[in-house]
Design a protein around this nucleic acid. Structure first.
Lengths: 234, 234
DNA sequence: CGTACATATTTACACCGTAAGTTGGACTTG
DNA sequence: CAAGTCCAACTTACGGTGTAAATATGTACG
């Protein structure tokens, strides 16, 4: 058994990068809950404690994971033929957000992990810097760019948190449950009924995540444009 | 020992509600990480396993916790003299969001827990129903109300996720780190410098959460109002 | 060659959620 | 009153977690 471990280690020596890759692969395939030191070690043909030679602790391993995602984020937006921010900052920023969203959809665990991370990651900060660059090129003051960053929030990195997933919740109880609570939530029931009726394709998983994301993004972009336009003297 | 446990149980018998209250109190005081079955049991003078008589598992205990928060949410918005939605839906909704925010600020663990919860909670759904009610009274179609719910996202329940807390991150490295990465993130550094200069009160914890929250909320409310107004025939 | 160094392993500990079985007191019922 | 039932609380145990500390093992260099 020592044999296999040795050969595995000799083949490609352990490293922070390889640990991060393995962890990302496991998280992609089985969710973030499957990511443990023992499991990642096993994935690399190595004992759990060996990981600590390249990674301070589990938190640092999670940092390595977001590092890889952040790298994909800037990679995905650099190889992007988006509108020129100087003439169309909205188009440029929109393209960035949608490109970022594709990265996040490949790593569904990432939003949750990102929110728990307090440590700065250089690539992630660089991504934000790019966003600020777009805003500045589009004519935003530093102050308005700052507010805009807050207002857009996680949308600039490609996701907007949903408080709960109505589709998943609808799976178990669905119709029966809605009837039961109909008297308590008349407005919601009415809204759902009409929305579902207008678009029968979505039975009870009635929310098209992608278009809802774009709707919210566009509302924000429009409102920010109005504020930007009102700060330039006529 | 059996004595004290019995008297404690006899004084006020264990219940789902009491368990939730104890868990909320612990989470408020020491963070959600301190909430474990053993700890909550200890808090109630009872062994951990006794909790399972009133709560299916830890997940159900977390559900009980959000139940209490949701109750505070509807309680806080019902006893609220907000504008009449029919004449000022924006003011009505804004008041709701800010009232909800106060609840969330009392329970800083709640946003994180809410996002992991998939089960529907009646009070929470009722709160959302109230939001839809405001929008409908304000002249929104069901379809637009639906989109608006998505666009506003967690803001209607009083918080907007921040990807990371710049204030916390700035604590350790701060100036030195900013200089080191200045060449990689010129726009960000420039923005921070100017924002910090304009408002010296906030040294490097440069973000006023409350006003940023309101800024984003107002941008959204404005954009939604424009869409609503454009759907009514002139 | 011998020694130092880096890496991987082993062992151990404290914590977690919870399945299973046991106790003991408070009711209901004959 | 006695017997039976019930149920909330307790005890024990198991497999999982992250990780500190000590140990083995290879590789590189003076």
């Amino acid at each position: 058994m020592t044999d296999t471990a040795q050969t595995a280690a000799a083949t490609r020596p352990l490293s922070r990068g390889r640990i991060g890759e393995a962890a990302v692969a496991v998280a992609d395939a089985e969710g973030i809950g499957a990511v443990s030191m023992r499991r990642i070690g096993q994935e690399l043909g190595v004992e759990a404690m060996s990981l600590y030679n390249h990674v301070a602790n589990k938190d640092a391993m999670l940092d390595a994971m977001v590092e890889l995602v952040a790298a994909q984020l800037i990679a995905g937006t650099s190889s992007l033929d988006a509108p020129d921010p100087a003439t169309d900052w909205r188009g440029a920023l929109r393209a960035r957000a949608l490109a970022a969203r594709e990265v996040m959809l490949r790593h569904r665990w990432a939003p949750g992990v990102l929110q728990t991370r307090t440590a700065m990651n250089l690539d992630l900060v660089r991504y934000y810097d790019g966003v600020v660059g777009v805003l500045r090129a589009g004519g935003f003051s530093n102050d308005l760019a700052h507010h805009s960053l807050h207002a857009l929030g996680s949308r600039v990195v490609g996701f907007s948190q949903e408080l709960f997933d109505p589709g998943a919740a609808a799976d178990d109880a669905s119709e029966e449950m809605l009837e039961a609570m109909a008297e308590h939530v008349p407005h919601l029931v009415g809204m759902l009924a009409e929305v579902a009726h207008d678009d029968p394709a979505s039975t009870l998983g009635w929310c098209d995540d992608q278009s809802e994301f774009e709707f919210g993004l566009d509302v924000l972009l429009e409102g920010l444009e109005r504020r930007r336009a009102s700060t330039v003297v006529p």
